[in-house]
Simulated scan of single mutants.
Amino acid sequence: MTAAANCPASVATFRSEHGFSITVARLRGLLVDKGMTIFVDIDQADAAAQVGMTLRPTRLIVFGNPKGGTPVMQANPCAGLLLPLKALVWEDEARVTWLAIDDVTGALVDGYGLAASLVEPLAKAKALIEMSAGRDPV
């Protein structure tokens, strides 16, 4: 899957300036530094290998901050279907590393009837994913 893969408009993809392992480490570090909890880190390539299949390096990192997510789920428990947030890191056939995040804020407002001000803090996650793909400032 490359950045040109078919994704909903709510999914933002970023080409990483780093290799796969470094990108994963940067993402994890940045999330923790910004007060996020990493709930689970799924190595999807390893899962494929366990059933005799191959998959390029692919990790799904499930993360969030209960201070931001809990009020959203208090307002509408079904919002828990979209929370916590998820970031995908994968390596394409050219060994380029990509990151993706589904910005769920629109769905929470439009589909779940939540106030935009309530879900606004969740939108900051997209910038964190983008930051982990880029070069460090000099």
Score class of each variant (00 low, 15 high):
residue 35 G to P: 07
residue 56 R to W: 05
residue 28 R to Q: 15
residue 12 A to V: 11
residue 59 R to N: 06
residue 16 S to I: 11
residue 113 G to F: 13
residue 61 I to G: 02
residue 14 F to D: 00
residue 100 A to S: 13
residue 17 E to W: 08
residue 69 G to Y: 01
residue 45 A to Q: 13
residue 35 G to R: 11
residue 4 A to M: 10
residue 58 T to S: 08
residue 134 G to D: 14
residue 103 D to P: 13
residue 9 A to S: 10
residue 56 R to M: 08
residue 69 G to A: 00
residue 124 K to T: 15
residue 57 P to I: 07
residue 52 G to N: 05
residue 74 Q to N: 12
residue 128 L to N: 02
residue 117 S to M: 12
residue 115 A to Q: 13
residue 102 D to Q: 10
residue 7 C to T: 14
residue 106 G to S: 08
residue 31 L to N: 05
residue 105 T to R: 12
residue 85 L to K: 05
residue 24 V to M: 06
residue 78 C to P: 07
residue 114 L to E: 07
residue 60 L to P: 01
residue 86 K to R: 14
residue 136 D to V: 11
residue 100 A to C: 03
residue 93 E to C: 04
residue 102 D to W: 06
residue 87 A to S: 08
residue 88 L to E: 00
residue 83 L to H: 04
residue 39 F to I: 09
residue 31 L to A: 05
residue 76 N to R: 12
residue 79 A to I: 00
residue 106 G to F: 08
residue 112 Y to D: 04
residue 39 F to Y: 15
residue 1 M to S: 12
residue 29 G to R: 15
residue 55 L to D: 02
residue 130 E to G: 12
residue 6 N to R: 14
residue 32 V to S: 05
residue 112 Y to S: 05
residue 3 A to D: 08
residue 96 V to F: 05
residue 67 K to I: 13
residue 22 I to N: 06
residue 42 I to W: 04
residue 14 F to V: 03
residue 39 F to W: 09
residue 1 M to C: 11
residue 14 F to C: 02
residue 92 D to V: 09
residue 98 W to L: 05
residue 111 G to A: 08
residue 126 K to L: 15
residue 82 L to P: 00
residue 73 M to T: 06
residue 12 A to E: 11
residue 86 K to L: 01
residue 50 Q to F: 10
residue 79 A to R: 00
residue 36 M to D: 08
residue 81 L to E: 00
residue 79 A to W: 00
residue 55 L to G: 03
residue 52 G to E: 02
residue 90 W to N: 01
residue 68 G to F: 14
residue 66 P to Q: 03
residue 55 L to W: 09
residue 60 L to R: 07
residue 104 V to Y: 03
residue 91 E to H: 03
residue 47 A to F: 10
residue 18 H to S: 12
residue 114 L to D: 03
residue 113 G to I: 12
residue 116 A to R: 11
residue 2 T to L: 09
residue 99 L to Y: 05
residue 62 V to D: 00
residue 8 P to V: 07
residue 52 G to R: 08
residue 127 A to E: 15
residue 51 V to H: 13
residue 87 A to F: 06
residue 78 C to D: 08
residue 6 N to E: 07
residue 89 V to N: 02
residue 34 K to Q: 14
residue 82 L to G: 00
residue 10 S to L: 12
residue 53 M to N: 06
residue 50 Q to P: 06
residue 109 V to Q: 12
residue 98 W to I: 03
